[in-house]
Design a protein around this nucleic acid. Structure first.
Length: 458
RNA sequence: GGCGCGGUAGCCAAGUGGUAAGGCCGAGGUCUGCAAAACCUCUAUGCGUCGGUUCGAUUCCGACCCGCGCCUCCA
């Protein structure tokens, strides 16, 4: 079953298949900048890419997909954070890289096969910059920084369809553009390949092109790491829509001018996650991290499910309610799974689910198809087929770990009295005591051999 | 100003030129002393507004209204 995906460059659905003779699909995803915990919007992209990775493995074979996702561990934000905290850059970036990995694991994302860090590929970046300088696509400014000359690349703007960026200068944002442009560029459109060392960079510096110390620009990092680990031409390059311009546009310019080959055969961008109808931002106070949601009592799996309920190329409005819905939906799937025999069902029982997944990664339609089948009952379905769907979506249906919250002594005492009343079938008293527990914010779950107490869900 | 996206039930969200998937919530029921869980049933004469094309439009076209994103921090 062909896997078709929208291509941001040609703006049409195209089949994903490896171009290289070895049959290995080369897949690059722009990873996080590690200076703070990633928020759930970041994770939308990574979860969507994880489903894509899983589908590719199912389609092409586990050893026929090579997924690379970088870590940006040097840039303005990481340097700023390190300076503010008076810590070495590597210490800050390692802390947040570790946190990112922990969050990804909690969300059941498969680790990429290679996870290159920008600071470990300085040489490769400098090499590319030097080639670009030799070819006349880059120039050194008075302060020692090196810029890419946008006018030297005819195809610039094809991806983002921004033909003449100079036009932007006369836009409402002109003031902002000029204010941020207090450097030595020949043209406002040009972008930094190498940033000359400045005092505020402290000891963050490396020998650069022609031995000028400084640090790499953001865009060159992905071009260099992609080239090193996947070659000059890759099969698929993905990221969030916000990276489409300028990041990906710049990557194309750098890589194609340097390598003289098509950079990526296919581009895919996942849309933004909105919270309460707006883009997440600190100023709006609607920015959530995984930890924020876990602290509210939600499971990471609920977030993963919620992130998949919207079409990846459409903005998805996230609400806490959607997390409640996700928890309930997962519970339904968990209960259904328990009724299935291990084998003996139709192998293609869930083919409609995969058809939707293969049709431009339509996860909401796939979930709809999934539940339609589940609602028909367990006849002819086995756990193996069910689990293939669960694998593709990357869900985990382990029973949620009960939150170990110790009830206050007073609540325990009421529960004990109610249990005793129930044993002697004094139901009037038992009901009255249940009401007391509810008023105190606790729920008492009866079993044959005892009971448990849980805080009432808000 | 330029580029792009969207407006479908209380909430989230698919989809099609031929009469609206799915999840959540809610209601009723089975079961349970009650509650919880599980299971069953029900829940949009209508898909932003106004026109047009058509035998027929939520689905195509046009205008308008509203919302969102990007335009060198940004998943």
């Amino acid at each position: 079953m062909a896997l078709r995906l929208f291509d941001s460059l040609s703006r049409e659905l195209r089949e994903l298949k490896p171009a290289h003779p070895d049959g290995v699909f080369r897949f690059y995803t722009c990873g996080p900048t590690v200076y703070a915990p990633a928020h759930i919007g970041n994770f939308r992209t990574f979860v969507v890419n994880d489903v894509l990775r899983r589908l590719l493995e199912l389609e092409l074979g586990r050893d026929k997909v090579k997924h690379v996702r970088n870590v940006t561990d040097v840039d303005d934000k990481t340097i700023k954070r390190a300076r503010e905290e008076r810590r070495p850059l590597w210490e800050v970036t390692r802390e947040w890289t570790d946190k990112f990995h922990a969050d990804c694991a909690a969300l059941n994302c498969l680790p990429p096969h290679v996870e290159p860090a920008a600071t470990e590929h300085i040489r490769e970046q400098v090499d590319m910059i030097e080639v670009l300088m030799r070819k006349g696509n880059a120039y050194r400014a008075a302060d020692g920084s090196v810029y890419f000359k946008v006018s030297s690349f005819d195809h610039y703007g094809r991806l983002s369809r921004v033909k003449e960026r100079e036009l932007q200068a006369s836009s409402a944002l002109a003031g902002k553009v000029h204010a941020a442009d207090a450097d030595e560029k020949e043209d406002v459109s040009d972008f930094a390949l190498w940033k000359a060392w400045k005092p505020e960079d402290g000891d963050v510096q490396w020998p650069g092109p022609e031995a000028t110390s400084g640090r790499p620009g953001w865009h060159i990092e992905c071009s260099a790491m992609s080239k090193k680990h996947l070659g000059d031409t890759i099969d698929l390059h993905t990221g969030g829509v916000d990276l489409l311009f300028p990041h990906h546009e710049n990557e194309i310019a750098q890589s194609e001018c340097c390598n003289g080959a098509t950079f990526a055969r296919h581009w895919y961008h996942s849309e933004f996650l909105l919270v309460d109808g707006k883009k997440m931002s600190k100023s709006l106070g609607n920015l959530y991290t995984l930890d924020d949601l876990v602290a509210k009592g939600f499971s990471p799996m609920a977030l993963r499910y919620a992130l998949l309920t919207g079409h990846p190329r459409k903005q998805l409005n996230f609400t806490l309610d959607s997390l409640h819905a996700a928890e309930s939906a997962l519970a339904t799937l968990r209960a259904y799974r328990a009724t299935l025999p291990a084998a003996g069902g139709a192998p293609d029982a869930f083919s409609t689910v995969f058809e939707n997944l293969h049709d431009d990664l339509n996860t909401p339609a796939a979930l709809g198809a999934f539940f339609s089948i589940v609602n028909r009952g367990s006849g002819g379905i086995d756990a193996a087929a069910f689990d293939r769907v669960i694998f593709a979506l990357g869900l985990k249906l382990d029973a949620p770990v009960p939150v170990k919250v110790q009830a206050p002594a007073a609540v325990n005492a009421i529960a004990e009295r109610r249990w005793a009343a129930k044993q002697i079938k004094d139901f009037a008293t038992a009901d009255a005591l249940r009401n007391e527990l509810t008023a105190a914010g606790w729920s008492m779950l009866d079993r044959k051999d005892g009971y448990s107490l849980e805080p009432l869900k808000k």
